[in-house]
């Protein structure tokens, strides 16, 4: 006699292995990005092409700095988890694992680089503010 319920034996046996968790996470982060992207595109679009000091001054301000940090954190997690979808379609086994690790790594490198740049811009902004 099996003591496991039908439900318990079925859990984790689907194609994803984790139920609808991935799909729900992508939907939730998509909504967050949908609210942030239009304003962020405007900030980046108007700053691109400016002299270096103006670029630093823009991203040293609280709103552009916080919004850019949020967009890169949520956006890069959305990207990394999004790449899993095509990887699962076109690759199997070790290749799929390696590709997923590579894509997640790329996303985290981009995230850390942007946060570093933002932090340094805020710091430079503080120094300039103290002098001016």
């Amino acid at each position: 006699m099996r003591y496991l319920t039908d439900r318990k034996r079925a859990v984790g046996k689907g194609a994803s292995g984790t139920g609808t968790e991935h799909h729900w996470w992508m939907s939730a982060s998509a909504v967050a990005l949908a609210f942030m992207i239009p304003t962020w595109l405007y900030i980046v679009g108007t700053t691109l092409g400016m002299p270096q000091q103006a670029v630093i001054a823009t991203f040293a301000q609280p709103f552009p700095a916080i919004l850019t940090a949020l967009v890169v954190i949520v956006g890069m997690r959305h990207f990394a988890k999004g790449t899993e979808i095509w990887i699962e379609d076109y690759a199997r086994g070790t290749t799929a694992k390696a590709l997923k690790i590579a894509m997640h790594s790329l996303a985290y490198i981009i995230m850390a680089t942007v946060l570093y740049a933002l932090g340094k811009m805020v710091f430079i902004g503080l120094l300039l503010g103290a002098n001016g």
Binding site: L48, T113, V114
Partner: peptide, 23 residues
């Protein structure tokens, strides 16, 4: 949807390089 979602990483890379260069 898949092509655009993955493809915009090229623009992100150029933008991140530009941000890093600024500091």
């Amino acid at each position: 949807t898949r092509i655009t979602g993955n493809g915009i990483i090229v623009g992100v890379l150029l933008l991140v390089w530009w941000l890093l260069a600024a500091v």
